[in-house]
Amino acid sequence: MGRLIQRAACSPDALVLDLGCGAGEWVLRALQEHPTARAFAVDMSEPALRRAEGSARERRLGDRVTFVRGDAQEYRPPQACDLVMCVGSTHVFGGLGETVQALDEQVAPGGAMLVGEGFWERPPTAEALEALGAEPADFQDLAGTVETVERAGWAPVYAHISELGEWDDYEWSWTGSLTRWALDNPDHPDAEAAIAAAREHRTGWLRGYRGVLGFATLLLQRQNPR
């Protein structure tokens, strides 16, 4: 995460936009890397935004980021930004190519884009497709993923391919957090459903797409700078 943001080579007072920010880890890391930068971060999830706001306060970054609850596809920042990020939320725009095209107008001249997208590590199995609710055409292999952003007019200048251990940590963290909450609150009316949801997702991951679906985060620059 830090290496990708550092390689974006933004000025210290950059303007950053994170679309589909979730709990805010990417945008907060960008603010830490750029000590006078300001940011806008957008997500539909109220609980995720609350966690993001809490993390921003803990890191003393709250006065430099504006969290917005809304549709990332419809949001427009007050001005074009030096770094625009969309990590794991390309479905909002209809896919990777559509995401890159949609974000283009929001990136300032000389700016960079950071996009995270799934890709097939190997041909998808029936179990993986069922667990993900996906079709084979929903993702490409890594080479095809890179070719998609190039066709949209952007060039990868660096990338991070998530290792299996990183993916495992992500999956265990969120299914475990949901399970722990339910076990700690057994009388809550949603506790039983939470455990069932965590179990269903964990089974789909372990018996379905683990080792089949990978994740790449691409740092992009325009092929024809404005």
Rank of each mutant, 00 (worst) to 15 (best):
G116D: 04
C81G: 03
Q101R: 15
R59N: 12
P136Q: 01
E98G: 03
L103F: 02
E58V: 11
E135L: 15
A131Y: 07
R76K: 09
R57E: 10
A72K: 08
S55D: 15
D82Y: 04
R57N: 06
D71R: 11
G97R: 07
W120D: 11
D82H: 09
P124K: 05
P136F: 06
C86G: 01
E58N: 09
D104E: 08
E74D: 14
A137R: 15
F93E: 05
T99D: 03
M113G: 11
R76E: 13
T125K: 09
G62T: 07
R76Q: 13
R122D: 06
F119D: 06
T90Y: 07
L103K: 00
G88C: 05
G94W: 08
A131P: 00
E121P: 08
C86I: 07
G94C: 05
A126N: 12
P124T: 10
M113V: 11
A126Q: 13
V100T: 09
F119N: 02
E98S: 13
P136H: 01
G111K: 05
M113P: 12
A56R: 02
E98L: 05
A131E: 00
Q73Y: 14
Q101I: 11
M85S: 01
F93M: 01
F93D: 06
E105C: 11
R69P: 07
E58L: 15
D104W: 12
D63M: 07
A137K: 15
L61I: 06
V68K: 06
G95S: 07
Q106K: 13
V115R: 00
Q106L: 15
G62D: 14
R57G: 08
G88Q: 04
G88H: 03
T66N: 13
L83E: 02
L83A: 01
P77K: 03
G95V: 09
R122P: 07
L114K: 03
P124H: 09
E58F: 14
L132A: 09
A102R: 01
Q73M: 14
P123M: 03
E58Q: 15
R60F: 04
G95E: 13
V65M: 00
G111P: 05
Q79M: 14
A72H: 10
E74N: 12
M85V: 00
R76C: 12
V107D: 00
L103W: 02
L103N: 00
D104H: 13
T66M: 10
G88S: 02
A131K: 02
Q101F: 12
D63I: 08
